[in-house]
Design a protein around this nucleic acid. Structure first.
Lengths: 183, 183
DNA sequence: CTGTAATTTCAGTAATTACTGAAACTAATG
DNA sequence: CATTAGTTTCAGTAATTACTGAAATTACAG
């Protein structure tokens, strides 16, 4: 990837920067990641720094963050002294990592807090009601996360077959019904 | 809900405040919403302001934001001049709204940007590769969102039945296989 | 219409988060 | 083991976002 990004790549990188902030990663890290995903060859920190025009130290921190999310891998290019980074080739791999990491950061702590509070004895009518809501939340969240865990287990080919079904849960559920009614 | 929160409710409210920042809503809005969800009766802005100890104007802005997310409804209590607010009773209702709103804000813009870029003619080898990645991303995201759209269509009882299946996609897929092999 | 309770707006300020450049550190090379 | 290419750390600063209090607005009751 050259110092000068092509307009198309530029647009995409910028967009991911904008969205980055809505996604809990900051603008620069978003841009960096888009660049890595769109680049066929691994990139070194300097290349990223030049291509996006922010400081070398910022790139260093950004890469560290991306590594903590397990979204990039470190590649050593033979004969090169620098470290090179790349995003996984498989987009589904990336998505799975994202889902998992977000669950860890955004869901799990809440589940465990709720569990803790549900163990307490309600002191009055008010707490009874509150606990009932917490119980519902806990059940629902747990179900949804279990669901995504299952999706994460899918490999590319199962995913493909779902994709061919139009990604439609409705159809899968229909099948469940048909199956059950035949049993 | 009294001015003084019970310790249990307090903990829950605080937790949702902390998590708020990871969820793209800020700390105070997170606390406000937790309070509304946990409270059996609708609350007015003053009550919220007193219970959580932030300024009346901050509460006003927070409520406005929650309304823009369609997460609260306005209730007029007969004989009362003030406006009262409440969260939907059904937790699943809340979750559906959250999913939908996040899709609108975090996914849709990206889909449309990608679509736009995919219409362009690649200028060189580099852009060809980049476009291929964008294509994969677009397909994957579209599939996952279609999936969640289907989930959103479920009503409480279908949801319940999935819940009873252990929320397991694996089992649903097994059924699909069994059904197909019998046909 | 007038007075008053309630809500909203907004300019100013506080708090948080993002970014940089200089210096410190690390490790490969001759 | 000295040199140097490369990376990381971190204190300082810039930019963004969150929050407040005072003033403006709304809307209802008499």
């Amino acid at each position: 990837m050259a110092d000068q990004l092509t307009p198309m790549i530029q647009s995409c990188v910028m967009h991911f920067g904008e969205m980055g902030s809505r996604w809990g990663i900051n603008r620069t890290v978003g841009q960096m990641y888009a660049l890595l995903v769109l680049s066929e060859e691994p990139l070194c920190a300097d290349q990223i720094s030049r291509a996006l025009g922010f400081s070398r130290s910022n790139v260093s921190m950004g890469l560290k963050e991306l590594q903590s999310w397990e979204l990039v891998r470190l590649k050593h290019i033979p004969g090169e002294r620098k470290e090179f980074f790349s995003a996984p080739d498989d987009v589904w791999e990336i998505a799975k990592t994202l889902i998992e990491q977000r669950r860890k950061r955004e869901i799990d702590p809440t589940l465990s807090t709720l569990r803790g509070l549900l163990l307490e004895q309600p002191a009055n009518r008010e707490e009874e009601y509150a606990q009932a809501r917490m119980q519902e939340m806990h059940e629902l969240i747990e179900m949804l996360t279990q669901w995504t865990t299952e999706i994460q287990r899918l490999n590319r080919s199962n995913l493909q077959s779902l994709l061919k079904m139009g990604g439609s849960l409705g159809k899968v559920l229909d099948m469940k019904d048909k199956f059950l009614s035949r049993s």
